[in-house]
């Protein structure tokens, strides 16, 4: 028995008069659409390069990608004898059914669109949302991808992101951080403050304004506690923080100011009698 491709393609699939050939056409058009979407979006991303911030670039790329996919879907639908004008009639009922069936999907989708246009977070931002801290890798249509500082991939549904408290550590251009610097009681606190300020002033990203502030904060049990408040660009503050503390410690030590060790002064009501110490003869 000879195998006839044309006859196979004419086989109805059992839904209306749709044949296998039409299903294949539908699939091919969709596949071509996806390929075109991928090529065009890749080229859009490449063309925009450094010209746009990464967030806007990715948003535009996704927009182009999904528009082409939707276009391919609309072009392919007639292959399945699907009359788009019928959607207008059936839209109300179908909408209700789909709405109930895919409530969370739609909710995530709408939340995703709001996130994309409201911009509470952008790709590359350091954030805390839903008790997850890390940097935003991607804001997708249904979910947001966070990479934690340990390098772990976490996908959070957009609805959860949108309804949670979002802490964006880099939303503002600058942020403040602080150090506690302990010195001994016998050290000159004014000198220590001057030295700390001088070290801070040498760092390019310890901002000139708002000016750093170093002051005696607490008279502690074991020493005087100085507090330093330093402003830095929000995206560079961690580097500044890790750079400066050791430099301040080194500068203080070079000037004879030391970090105090825990100490206790013990009083003996009858005085302290030392026996067997060096220089005392026993026996």
């Amino acid at each position: 028995m000879a195998f006839n491709v044309a006859e196979v393609l004419e086989i109805p699939i059992g839904v209306g008069d749709i044949t296998l050939e039409r299903v294949l056409y539908f699939a091919v058009i969709l596949m071509v659409g996806v390929i075109i979407a991928k090529i065009v979006s890749t080229n859009v991303r490449r063309a925009l390069g450094e010209r746009l911030p990464v967030n806007e670039r990715e948003l535009l790329t996704k927009l182009v990608y999904y528009i082409i996919i939707i276009w391919a879907f609309v072009v392919a639908l007639p292959q399945l004898n699907f009359d788009l004008s019928g959607l207008l009639v059936a839209g109300g009922i179908a909408g209700l059914v789909i709405g109930f069936a895919s409530q969370s999907v739609v909710s995530n989708l709408i939340s995703g669109l709001f996130l994309m246009f409201e911009h509470p977070i952008r790709i590359g931002d350091n954030i805390n949302v839903a008790n997850v801290t890390g940097s935003v890798e991607d804001v997708r249509v249904l979910s947001t991808v966070i990479k934690t500082y340990d390098g772990i991939y976490i996908r959070i549904p957009n609805e959860k992101v949108f309804t949670s408290n979002i802490t964006n550590y880099v939303h503002n251009p600058a942020r403040r951080f602080s150090y506690e610097i302990r010195i001994r009681y016998q050290d000159d606190a004014d000198k220590a403050i001057r030295i700390a300020k001088e070290v801070i002033a040498t760092h390019p990203f310890a901002l000139k304004s708002p000016a750093p502030s170093v002051f005696v904060d607490t008279l502690g049990e074991n020493g005087v506690i100085l507090t330093a408040y330093i402003w830095a660009p929000a995206r560079n503050w961690w580097g500044v923080r890790t750079d400066l503390l050791w430099k301040i410690k080194q500068a203080l030590e070079e000037n004879g100011i030391a970090i105090p060790f825990p100490q206790r002064t013990v009083w003996f009501p009858d005085g302290l009698e030392v026996k067997g110490g060096s220089g005392e003869e026993t026996g």
Binding site: R175, P204, L207, K208, P210, P233
Partner: peptide, 19 residues
């Protein structure tokens, strides 16, 4: 030589600038 940066404006709406 060295560089120094500053904040022009407020911490919420200002801009970082080379000073």
């Amino acid at each position: 030589g060295t560089q120094k940066y500053t904040l022009y404006g407020s911490p919420t709406t200002g801009v970082i600038a080379r000073w």
